[in-house]
Nucleic acid binder design. Sequence first.
DNA 1: GCGACAG
DNA 2: ATCTTGTCGC
Length: 421
Amino acid sequence: MRVLLAGATGAIGVPLVRALTGAGHMTADAVLHEATALRGAAPRLKVGDPTNALRHTGTENLLAAARAVGARRLVTQSMILGYGYADHGDRVLTESDAFGLPRRSYADTVVAGCESTEQQAFGAGDVEGVALRYGLFYGPRAFSDMFADLMRKRRPCVPTGGGGTNCWIHVDDAARAWPLLPRAEFAPPSGVRSGRRTRLDVGMTSAHEWPTTIAEAEAVQERLRPLVDLDDEGPERVEFVAGLDVGYAADGDEVTGAVVVLEADTLRVVDSAVVRRRAAFPYVPGLFAFRELPPLLAAMEELTVTPGLLVCDGYGLAHPRRFGLACHLGVLTGLPVIGVAKTAFVGTHDDPAAERGSWSPILLDGEVVGRALRTRRGVKPVYVSQGHRIGLDRACAHVLRMAPAYRLPEPIRLADRLSRT
DNA sequence: GCGACAG
DNA sequence: ATCTTGTCGC
Ligand SMILES: [Mg+2]
């Protein structure tokens, strides 16, 4: 394995060297452009910025180096800034979006630099060019870690209005993606979103509100409740389902969030994640999402596979304020969520018939808020309620399919087991 | 006012 | 949720 790495002492370079020397994944000789200016970088962008020069003439030189050493591949560093220094809204930008176009913003020189390094790499002909469009990194030596640090201090800098979503990637994770590049199959397998693997274990998950008092917590629920979608029938079939549960340490106040992702058809495990941390809220009936949500979201961030449906241990709509854990999880993730509880909570219901698949509605203030659903003949039913973006009929169909052998659906059964280990 | 109350 | 041995039933 022969690799020429320009920029070995940088934010990506250091973990990349660590990964390359240990992994041995490199099968082709390659030149990697991770170089930024070591000196002379101005605090504010200006014409003639030395790092930008590395995009233009630096790429030129490294391409010449690649040819000189007979490398088959040149991997260069680009940036999402190349899409334009502007608010792009909620839409996810992809390679099909326009890139490198000037917008008469002060960042145009950098946009041009990104376009230059990419076009040089792509147009090399004899050398295969790959460009990585970097976004926000955090971790040692990363420039944007200064913003991450503000989040750690709970003083995030957010766009006007406080909305927006950013995707942060740890430099170690970014470096770990590099050894995969020389493989031909660059496209991630279905259901896997490359670049989404993040380590937001420092509380950067988002600007979500984490109340500390009961009154605040109830107010948050009232405020978020209108965001729940109960009308969407939701997916009839999904490729991947995730089960979520939280375990509690025998002593102290540590909580362990666990997520297990299964292939829906086979119920085989394809991914999982566990996160242990201090509990931020006590258990209060009606507010237990504030205890379980933080470790669950943190565990979700660790996943490599993005599930199309979540199943959580607890209620959704069947809740004193119609906003149980399943709803809260849905609003925060945007994913369809089914709540499956093991014991009764609010409302009334008849005991369903003994057959597997029989059910009776759970009534609260004259409304149907869920179902007691028998998943095994003669065994206590589970309590199914809508969380977000899923109809009650469809939710029950999913639960029955996911619980072929035991009372509890496999996803939460496995998540429960994982949260205890 | 009292008790019950997802995990 | 957790502590925790045995017991009952399929
Ligand atoms: Mg649980």
